[in-house]
Amino acid sequence: MSGRLAGATMLVTGGGSGIGRAVVHAYLSEGAEVTVLERSPDHAAALCSETDGAVEAVVGDATDPSTVQHAVTVARRGGDGLDHLTCCVGVFDYCTSLKDLKAGDLLAAGEEIWRANVLSTLLAINLAYPALRAAHGSATLTLSGSAFYPEGGGVLYGSSKWALRGAVAHLAKDLAPEVRVNAVAPGGTGGTRLGGLRALAQAQTADRVPGRDERIQAGTALRITPQPRDHASAYVYLADPAGARVITGAIINSDGGRM
């Protein structure tokens, strides 16, 4: 298959829904061979079905080293190298205020969100690094507008995304010159189903928050509510070994122009 990513081996963690799912479809359309690590068996099965089996899916926890290592092995497709890793795992805090939390709840929620949003990314890069180095590959992290502004989440979510923002710069230096490291920072996005914190019994998903899409639209210069597919081209660009050959340590803000 032809395309900017023709024949490239890719691993997408958290690729079964939302922005990750849109990124998977974009990679496939550019000729990549995509493997997904997804916690939800239903989301994984649906993705495999809608792509006619073009996606290899590994079901499991992105914070479990043995699961992540297995996903990296599958993604290599029998070779030594992995061309690209995209990390899209994330949970949300529903704008929970620090002042409203009891100390025990804070500790439990903080450990949960940092483990999911930060540690899963660092673990994936740690375990994928030998294969990425062998291929002179790249990695793309998923940030958020909350990595730049106090909006779209509470301090738990925001601080986790700020941590990833710092990780981009540090990893770009640490893994150079063999591996490029960049990020996309989507703004508020309609149609996403970020789950809440189990530690705080937040069962609602982001797509069911009343008035959310309207608030997102009003807060952008372009007066639009981005959809998952609107962010995917930024990921394709950063994963392109030719088009983004000299790009590392960079963050693309795909937020419709934050106001």
Rank of each mutant, 00 (worst) to 15 (best):
A203M: 06
A75H: 14
I216D: 00
A71D: 12
K161I: 06
A6V: 09
S66I: 11
G81Q: 13
P241D: 00
G53C: 04
N126A: 07
V184P: 01
A139I: 14
A218M: 08
V184G: 10
N182C: 10
V236N: 02
A250H: 13
V23E: 00
G256L: 09
S254Y: 12
A6Y: 00
S160L: 12
K99C: 11
L156D: 05
V23L: 05
Y237M: 12
R229Q: 14
A199M: 08
A199G: 10
A199H: 14
A8Y: 01
S120I: 12
P41Q: 10
E56V: 15
S49L: 07
F148E: 00
I251S: 11
L197D: 00
L47V: 09
T140F: 15
A244L: 07
A135G: 15
T225Q: 05
S138E: 01
I125E: 06
Y27S: 05
A199Y: 12
R245G: 01
I251T: 15
L175Y: 13
I224G: 04
T205P: 02
G195V: 12
G90I: 10
A234L: 03
L175P: 03
N253H: 11
R258Q: 02
V118R: 13
I216A: 13
D52K: 15
I224D: 02
K102G: 13
A135P: 03
A169L: 12
W162N: 01
T189F: 06
L101N: 12
A242R: 13
A232I: 06
W114Y: 15
L5I: 07
L197T: 10
A103V: 08
F92R: 05
V34D: 02
E56F: 01
N182E: 05
A116I: 07
S138R: 05
A128R: 13
D207R: 10
T192G: 03
V184S: 06
L127E: 06
A128Y: 14
G81Y: 04
A218C: 03
I216T: 11
V155P: 01
D105I: 11
L238N: 03
L11K: 02
G81E: 06
A26V: 09
T142R: 14
G137Q: 07
S17Q: 09
A242Y: 05
A206P: 00
I252Y: 12
W162V: 15
D93K: 04
L127D: 05
S2T: 14
A244Y: 07
S160Y: 12
V24W: 01
S2Y: 01
V55W: 02
S17G: 08
